[in-house]
Design a protein around this nucleic acid. Sequence first.
DNA 1: CTGATTGCTGATACAGCGTCAGATTTCGCT
DNA 2: AGCGAAATCTGACGCTGTATCAGCAATCAG
Lengths: 222, 222
Amino acid sequence: MATRSGEKSEVDQSGRPLGPRALNTRRRLLDATVELLDSSSVRDISVVEIARRAGTSPATFYQYFKDVGEATLRLAEEAADEVPAVLELIDGSWRGQKGMQTSRSITDAFIRHWDAYRAVLLVRNLAADEGERRFQKVRRRALHPILESFARKIEECQPDPVASGDVHPYAAAAALAALLERLAAYHKELEPIGVTREDLVENCARIMYQTVTGRLAPSANG
Amino acid sequence: MATRSGEKSEVDQSGRPLGPRALNTRRRLLDATVELLDSSSVRDISVVEIARRAGTSPATFYQYFKDVGEATLRLAEEAADEVPAVLELIDGSWRGQKGMQTSRSITDAFIRHWDAYRAVLLVRNLAADEGERRFQKVRRRALHPILESFARKIEECQPDPVASGDVHPYAAAAALAALLERLAAYHKELEPIGVTREDLVENCARIMYQTVTGRLAPSANG
DNA sequence: CTGATTGCTGATACAGCGTCAGATTTCGCT
DNA sequence: AGCGAAATCTGACGCTGTATCAGCAATCAG
């Protein structure tokens, strides 16, 4: 569960840089936080329990984080680092069946990303939606590249200038991002209603294809 | 801010029905809760403060609600009661420019709904996404009718059986609902990036039109 | 006016927050 | 191997909020 990444000069609550022992403690605290986030509601996560689970004391927690929110923020930053993988897919081919395949891959990858970081991303989005700047910033960092890529592709793929007049690339890209995000957060609740993940991916992919290319999605069978 | 509605035989924490005075106190507590929800993060809303703002004591709060979550749930139920207005729009015409107009109205109405109940809906969605049954249920109550209506229209409007084979009405409807929800939660953060609410509505409406009818959206200028 | 019913709250025990001062561990150096 | 100094951790504490009673205050029917 511990995500190693190029953390350069992490810092104490009082600004002092962290040695190896401290780094390790910090990691344990973050991991404990995810676990709790995964298994219970944000509202009743306590510093005491994070500390307990990390095998340390509450006082130690405050050495590294201002509060639970800040720990969560760090986790959200780690999640944002994983996005680029999804990104590359957008630059694939968008012609005909190939395009549909690209569409499907993106949708699938995005949902997988969400399934992996679900709890953290939910909290991130809530905090961002509630207006917390720090969280809006991480979300932008994660989503903007996707927005940009989509917008670029949309501009490039629209059939002709007449139709393009109606399409605002950024707005359309934002719509796609919104669609992906909500669907990813959502999909498990739909299966009981008789909508499989596959159905969802397929239909989401069709929408994506049509929005990017401005053309109707080709039929699946030939 | 107080929403009057046909609340039939509201009940005490111990199951006793409420008289007029009690009903009023309860209402004040709920209103205070919304206000706090609107002005601060869920994580740091306290019963003490709700009570203070409602001009009563914490002990009174617990007479009516098990905890802050339950008060929020009630608020979410009130919001769900307001959805039907959005619903009727879906049954409008979906042919050509008229269809685009229908699409726009739905999107616009949905966003307005969200702007009105934003804080409560955010919390509802988080709780539902975190797996809390009670909240999943209210969300379903609000969203299912919309899903149904969309699904019905989609089935009815697809151009021909060949293409229909690829479209799963419920999955497509779910995608539209997801799109609407996220965009509604989101739209204010996009304006600083240069995407106006109008752009958003227009592009969301195009997607909706294409998904429902299976045809390309007509150009805006005739 | 009065007793019964309905609605409210002060007092309380218990739990988590956030902050220090000081204890403990680790490390560089001889 | 052993000794400060620096790095890291924690016990203890005052404060705020939760959740629950037992009983006080308001209201109403007669």
